[in-house]
Simulated assay, not measured.
Amino acid sequence: MSRFSFLEWPVVRQLRSGDPLGRGEAVTSQKTRDITARTSTADRVVQSVCPYCAVGCGQRVFVKDEKVVQIEGDYDSPISRGRLCPKGSASEQLVNAPSRQMSVLYRAPYAKDWQHLDLETATDMVADRFIEARRNTWEDTDEQGRALRRTMGIAGLGGATLDNEENYLIKKLFTAAGAVQLENQARI
């Protein structure tokens, strides 16, 4: 067990290191000196856009061993100029959360348990139900014969983790399908 040296006393360290006010090297512990930032050990930095809202703040994503280790604001972004809101700052957790679902889960009507499905089967199920709902609830004209060309059996709700482009494409898809009930989580 090593003994604490008189030379390591804070006041002595301040005078010895040329930091009389104790605002720099004199108050930095050895443990702090040994720490390296996650950003300095990253293999590469990828520019991205925050996925949470429609603002489109720029992000710098630090990747090491093909895993996201840190996300910071992008100073080159003309929109956010290096700033991120609390959700954008925590978006690293969106990718690295241990409870993140990585497979499709399906629960049949009246079933108690979830079952795993492959992505192709789940996509086909959604498409079949979408087409069937559109076909069964299509309204071509109203009682006076005016053109409606809509369906009230399909509604769309955009999410806050989708970016502008994804929400735009979803709105175009649902509008083309005849849906008129479209909303976004950001407005609710």
Rank of each mutant, 00 (worst) to 15 (best):
R44H: 00
V61N: 06
L84R: 00
V12D: 12
A26E: 08
I71D: 11
R16Q: 11
G56D: 03
P51F: 00
K87F: 01
C50M: 03
D74R: 00
P86I: 02
G22V: 08
S17N: 15
P51A: 08
C57S: 06
E92Q: 12
S89N: 15
K67P: 01
G82Y: 05
C85M: 00
R23N: 06
Q70K: 13
I35R: 13
S89H: 15
V12Q: 12
A26K: 09
K67G: 05
A42D: 00
G88Q: 10
V45P: 04
G18D: 08
P51Y: 05
R60L: 10
G22E: 04
V45C: 12
T39S: 13
D65F: 04
R60F: 03
S77N: 15
R83K: 12
R81V: 14
V45D: 07
T28I: 15
R83C: 08
C53F: 08
V61I: 12
R38S: 09
G82V: 04
K87T: 00
Q14P: 09
C50I: 07
V69Y: 06
S29G: 14
G18I: 07
Y75T: 12
C57M: 06
D19I: 10
L15D: 09
E66I: 02
A54V: 08
V49L: 08
Q59I: 11
S17W: 13
P86S: 07
V46I: 10
P20F: 15
G73N: 07
W9K: 15
D34T: 11
L21K: 06
L15F: 13
D43S: 01
V61G: 03
V46M: 06
C50L: 07
L15W: 14
C50V: 08
V12A: 15
P51I: 02
R23H: 11
S5N: 12
Q70P: 01
C57T: 04
E92Y: 04
Q30F: 14
E72W: 02
R83Q: 15
T32C: 01
V49P: 03
L15P: 04
P78G: 13
V68A: 03
